[in-house]
């Protein structure tokens, strides 16, 4: 049990009359990459937004790094969030800031603030890890889609997170850049030993990054297993994802 970093039990979430998540249970172990597959609108993004408290679930229990997030006050939740990295689908870079300022921004939340030199070192190290050191003074509008995702990833890495949540990291990218991002996710896993949940419908990304996979259908878990197990599933609907 000790190596479980996140646990979701019987999660339910509805919007109006639409039940998006009916009963989802997931566990995430330290250092593992869990890929969640599913059609658009099945609540994959809702699941990870509930996990970090961006959305309040209607039912169920979420334990993050040993803490039940429903019982946390705002300040306590913010402390937990500092150990979580979140790569948004659009990368969510701050438009009015340079790449350097984007990366320094999350550091302002730390209790022990580093000097300007320390921050610069951290920024350069994070950018080196994603291979984009030369973009340090660029504005987000000057970056390509792939570069924005890399900078977004660097911004999550700068906080040395224990869990990283990737929301469709390869959506909208060409196959070569998608493969590079997928490889980068794998490198991050090895280097930081961080656990990750990867929301995707890119099977190639899932093949490269997944230690374990889960398929969501109509708000419930349709299948769970390794890439190989699911790609050879007896369920035709599950198998159709891999064809």
């Amino acid at each position: 049990m000790e190596d479980i970093v996140a646990e979701i039990k019987h999660l339910k979430k509805s919007f109006g009359t639409k039940e998006v998540l009916k009963d989802i249970s997931v566990t995430l172990k330290k250092g593992e990459n869990l890929v969640i597959l599913g059609k658009s609108g099945t609540g994959k993004s809702v699941l990870i937004k509930c996990l970090v408290g961006l959305l309040a679930p209607d039912g169920g229990e979420i334990t993050l790094l040993g803490k039940n997030i429903a019982e946390l006050k705002d300040d306590e939740l913010n402390e937990v969030r500092k150990k979580i990295g979140f790569l948004f689908q659009s990368a969510a870079l701050y438009d009015s800031m340079t790449v350097r300022e984007n990366l320094v921004f999350p550091l302002r939340g730390l209790k022990e603030k580093g000097s300007k030199e320390d921050n610069e070192k951290l920024v350069r190290e994070a950018l080196q890890n994603v291979g984009l050191e030369e973009a340090i003074d660029k504005m987000p509008s000057e970056l390509s889609g792939g570069m924005r995702k890399r900078v977004g990833l660097a911004r999550t890495l700068i906080m040395k997170p224990e869990i990283i949540l990737y929301d469709e990291p390869t959506t909208g990218l060409d196959p070569i850049t998608s493969k590079e991002i997928s490889q980068l996710i794998l490198d991050v896993q090895k280097k930081y030993n961080a656990a990750a949940i990867i929301i995707t419908h890119d099977v190639e990304c899932a093949r490269i990054t997944a230690n374990r996979m889960m398929v969501i259908k109509n708000g419930i878990t349709a299948a769970e297993g390794t890439f190989k197990e699911l790609s050879n599933s007896e369920d035709e609907w599950v198998r159709s994802f891999f064809q």
Partner: peptide
Amino acid sequence: DAMEVSGIN
């Protein structure tokens, strides 16, 4: 949302 998940209000 990105600010919020970074622990910044």
